[in-house]
Design a protein around this nucleic acid. Structure first.
Lengths: 350, 350
DNA sequence: TTAGGGCACTAAACCGCTCTAGTTGCCGGA
DNA sequence: TCCGGCAACTAGAGCGGTTTAGTGCCCTAA
C-alpha cells in the first residue's frame, strides 16, 4: 500500500475512522483493548500522520517561521546567524518543531511571506529579526494575529513578545573601559543605520562621549560587510596623517566595531597600514565568536552566548504559540567585555 | 472576514468554487471577463492560497527539506554550513521555495523525519548532507520515492542525484605542493572517520605518500571540533621532541586540516607551543572562509565557492523535483589551492 | 432543421484527518 | 420491569482547495 490512511487502519481493525483518530491521539472514546489493537495496526502498517490534513482541520503545523530580509550572501559571513540558528534548532528540535526558513529581498516581501504562511497554516509562529527604526513588520504580524517574538526588540510598546540585550549598557561599558585606559578619540564602525540596535549603540556612544568629555567620538555606518568595515577603517586611520587637521579629524586611538567580521577586517587594514595594534590602535568588537579569539592579537570583544540566545528566543516563541495571550519581554544578559590583546593604553605619540 | 476562501470569492462574484479555482490557477474553463472579475475580487478580499489544502490534493509543498544529524552546537561554528545555507537560499528563494530545516540526533531519527515529511507532503524533496560510509539514508529515501540530492555523494551507484567535489584530486594537489616545497613528513588532521569525504582524503594522502615515497604520512581522525583539532595538533607537535623516536614519530613539518576551524585551532596551538609558522610548520586548511584569510599568517587553503555550491545543489534538487525521472550527477570545480603565508619550505633543523 | 462540437460554467466527489452529534448496548436503581 | 445514564463506538460534516463529470447554450455545417 502506498501510504496507509486512518481509513485503511479502520477497515483492517474493523472500526470506524473516528475510533482510529481517537486512539491515535490518546483521546477518550475507545476502550483500552481497541486502542491497543489500533495502535498495533498503525505500527504494522507504518502509518504516519498527514500534517497537511491536520492543518486543514486547524491543528498546529509544528513549525516556526524565520524570514530574513538580507542578501543571502551575507548570511554565511556572520557567525552570529549560524550560532543563533543552532541555538534555535537545539531548543525547537527538542519538541520536534521544525523551522521554515526563507530569505527575501525586503520588508515588503517579508510581510507578504508572513501573510502566506499564516493563511496556509504553514507555521505556528514567527521569529522576527533585525528590527528597524520604522519597522512595518510588527504591525503586520499583529494584524495577522500571528504569534511572534522580536529578536532585538527594544521591548517598546506593541503586543509582540521580545528578547533583547541592553546595547546601550554594553556600549557604555566599552567606552568606560577605553576611557579608563586613557583613550580620548574613540571611533565606532557601526552597522546598518536602519537597525534599531545600531541606533542605540550610536546614541550610547554619543552620550557617553559627552559625559566623559571625549572629543571626536564618531560613528561610521556600514552595511556590516567586511569590505565596508575595512573601508571605514581605512578612512579613520588615514586621518590626521598629514598632521594639522582639527582635533576631531585626528586619527582615533581606539575603534569599536559593530561586528566581529568588521573588527577582523579592521585589524587587517591596520596591519596593512603599519598601524600597530594595540600600541597605536585599540580594537574592540561588539560581537564575539571564534573569529575574535584566533587572531593575533586576539580581539577584545563584547561576548554573549549567541547559542543560548537562540535557545531563549525559541523558548519564548514556543510559549507564545502555546498560549497566544501571553506577552514575554525577556532581557538577556548584557554582553560582557572580554579583554584580549587588541586593547591597551594608547602610546603618547600624537 | 477572518480568512477568505475560494468559496467566499465564488459567492461574491456569483460563480462556483470550481470557476474560481480555474481562474486563480490560470487554467482554461472561464472566460477572460469572468477571470478578471474573480482575480479582482480575490485581490480585494486579500485572498491567499491555503497550502495545506492544496497539499491534501497532492500539490507541491514548495519547500525542500534539510535534516542535519549533528549536534546543533557545531553548526554555528563551521562557516561552511552557513555559506551553504546562504547559497541554497539564494537559489531557492528565486522560485519562492522555502526550506524546512531540522536538526536531529542521528541517522535513524533523520530517516524518521524523511518518512514524516514525505507522508505529510511537507516538502517536495530533500537535500542529504554528510554522506557516510555505510549510509542507510539513500536507501530509505529511494524507498520513499522522495526526490533528493546527495551533497558530497561520490556519484556511486544508486539512483539519487548528487553534487560532489573531487576530494582526492584536491588532496593530491596539496601533497604535491607541500612535497615540492621539500616537506617529507606531512600529517593530516582529518574529520569524522565515518564521513565519505574524510575516507577519500585519508586514502588520497596515503596513496600520494606512497607514490612520492613520503614517510610517516598520518591521518588523525577528529570530530571536526576546534577542541579535537587542537588536541590532535598538540599530539603531533609533541612528537620527536625528546629526540630519538623512529622517523614515523618525528614531528611533522606540515599539517593538513580537514576544516578551516581546525586549522585555526592548530595555528593557535603552534603559536602557544612556540612552533613558528611557516618556518617550522606549514599549515594548510581543506576549506576556505573568512577565517583563513584574517589570521597572521594567513592560512594556505583549498578554496571553493561554498555559496555557489549551495546554488548548484539547490538547482539540482529543483530539477529532480520538477522531473523525478532525471538523475543528475554534478561534479563541482575541484577546490583550488590558495597559497598564503602559512606554508613555506621547511627549515633544515631536524 | 438538426446533429454535433466547443465553450463557459456548475455540482459534487475527493484528499486525510478531526470532531460533533448521534446510536447502541449494558448496567444499576427504583 | 422499565428507564436513565454512561461508556463505546459510528456516521458524517467540515476544513480549503482541485478536479472530473456533467449541463446548458450557442454556433456551425450538413
Amino acid at each position: 500500500m502506498a501510504r496507509p490512511t486512518i481509513a485503511d487502519i479502520a477497515q483492517r481493525v474493523g472500526v470506524s475512522k473516528g475510533a482510529v483518530s481517537f486512539a491515535l491521539n490518546g483521546r477518550p472514546g475507545v476502550s483500552e483493548a481497541t486502542r491497543a489493537r489500533i495502535l498495533e495496526a498503525a505500527r504494522e502498517m507504518n502509518w504516519r500522520p498527514h500534517s497537511a490534513a491536520r492543518a486543514l482541520g486547524g491543528a498546529r503545523a509544528e513549525a516556526v517561521g524565520l524570514v530574513i530580509a538580507r542578501p543571502a550572501s551575507t548570511l554565511g559571513v556572520e557567525p552570529f546567524f549560524a550560532q543563533l540558528l543552532s541555538g534555535l534548532q537545539a531548543r525547537l528540535s527538542r519538541q520536534q518543531v521544525a523551522m521554515h526558513l526563507l530569505v527575501v529581498e525586503d520588508s515588503a516581501a517579508e510581510i507578504e511571506v508572513y501573510r502566506e504562511w499564516t493563511s496556509a497554516h504553514r507555521v505556528d509562529g514567527f521569529i522576527l529579526v533585525d528590527p528597524q527604526v520604522r519597522d512595518p513588520r510588527p504591525a503586520a504580524l499583529e494584524e495577522l494575529g500571528a504569534p511572534a517574538v522580536v529578536l532585538g526588540g527594544s521591548g517598546g510598546p506593541g503586543p509582540l513578545s521580545s528578547v533583547w540585550a541592553d546595547d546601550r549598557e554594553a556600549m557604555l561599558s566599552v567606552v568606560d573601559y577605553l576611557a579608563a585606559l586613557g583613550h580620548r578619540r574613540i571611533a565606532h564602525v557601526a552597522g546598518l543605520p536602519g537597525f534599531r540596535h545600531t541606533q542605540r549603540r550610536i546614541r550610547a556612544l554619543r552620550d557617553s562621549a559627552r559625559r566623559l568629555g571625549l572629543t571626536g567620538a564618531v560613528s561610521l555606518p556600514t552595511d556590516f560587510s567586511d569590505a565596508e568595515g575595512a573601508a571605514a577603517t581605512r578612512t579613520l586611520l588615514s586621518r590626521g596623517r598629514a598632521g594639522a587637521g582639527p582635533i576631531e579629524a585626528a586619527r582615533p586611538t581606539a575603534i569599536v566595531y559593530d561586528s566581529d567580521v568588521m573588527a577582523l577586517a579592521g585589524l587587517g587594514v591596520a596591519m596593512e597600514m603599519g598601524v600597530r595594534v594595540p600600541d597605536e590602535l585599540s580594537i574592540v568588537a561588539f560581537d564575539d565568536s571564534v573569529l575574535t579569539r584566533v587572531t593575533h592579537p586576539a580581539i577584545t570583544a563584547l561576548s554573549r552566548d549567541t547559542f543560548a540566545l537562540g535557545g531563549q528566543v525559541a523558548e519564548v516563541v514556543l510559549e507564545v504559540i502555546a498560549d497566544p495571550g501571553t506577552r514575554r519581554n525577556v532581557k538577556t544578559a548584557t554582553p560582557r567585555l572580554v579583554i584580549r590583546g587588541s586593547t591597551a593604553a594608547p602610546t603618547k605619540t600624537v
